[in-house]
Computed example of a mutant assay.
Amino acid sequence: MNKRGMTFSEKKFVLFTYLLSTFLVPTSAVAQEGETAVAGVNHQLAVTVANQDQSPATNVVVFLQPTNQNQSLPMNQTPLHIGQQDKAFVPYVSVMQKGSEVSFMNYDDITHHIYSPVGQHKFSFKIKASEEKIIDTIDETGEIAMGCNIHDWMSGHILVVDTPYFAVTDDNGIAKLPDIQQGDYLLNVWHPQLSSDNNNDVSQTIEVNSTRSARVQLNTTLAREPVQENSEDFDFLSDY
Rank of each mutant, 00 (worst) to 15 (best):
T58A: 06
L45G: 01
H191N: 15
D171Q: 10
D152N: 15
T67C: 08
L194W: 07
D233A: 13
N199Q: 14
V216G: 04
H81E: 11
S210Y: 03
G147W: 01
Y165Q: 01
G183N: 13
T7P: 01
I144Y: 05
N70T: 15
M75E: 15
T169S: 14
H112C: 05
I135K: 06
G142H: 03
L218C: 02
H81D: 12
D201L: 04
V161T: 08
I158A: 07
N106Y: 11
R4C: 00
A46T: 09
I134A: 10
F16H: 09
H113G: 03
Q84E: 13
S195Q: 14
N188I: 03
V189E: 03
I134H: 06
Q52F: 02
F8G: 01
S238F: 00
E143R: 12
L186Q: 13
S72L: 15
T27C: 10
L218P: 04
T211E: 10
N199P: 05
L19I: 04
V102Q: 05
S72I: 15
L80S: 14
E33S: 11
Y115R: 09
C148Y: 06
P178E: 14
V208G: 07
A129V: 07
K12Y: 00
N68Y: 03
S238I: 09
Q193R: 14
F123A: 08
L186N: 14
E143Q: 13
D239W: 05
A31P: 01
Q204E: 14
V118T: 12
V168M: 11
E10G: 01
V216S: 04
V208C: 03
N59Y: 07
F63R: 06
V95W: 01
D239T: 01
S210L: 02
P74C: 10
V202E: 07
S103R: 13
E132Y: 05
Q85S: 14
A57V: 02
S203L: 00
R215S: 15
V168H: 01
N172D: 15
A175E: 02
G99P: 12
C148P: 07
D53H: 08
A175K: 02
P26H: 04
D233K: 04
G183C: 06
D170E: 12
I206W: 00
E33Y: 01
H81P: 05
D197R: 09
E140P: 00
N149K: 14
L20I: 11
P192D: 12
E33R: 06
Q217D: 00
Y107M: 14
K122L: 11
L237T: 13
G156S: 11
L187N: 07
Y92H: 13
D136W: 09
V14K: 10
S55P: 03
A37V: 12
G183H: 02
V62F: 04
G34K: 06
T137I: 10
F16S: 13
N76V: 10
L20R: 06
T221C: 02
Q228N: 04
N188A: 08
Q65I: 13
D201Q: 01
V202K: 06
T58K: 11
E140F: 14
V189H: 05
D139T: 13
Y18K: 04
P178D: 15
I150Q: 07
K11E: 01
S155A: 12
N209V: 00
L194H: 12
V216M: 03
H113N: 11
K176C: 06
T211C: 08
K122G: 11
E232P: 00
H113L: 02
T78V: 15
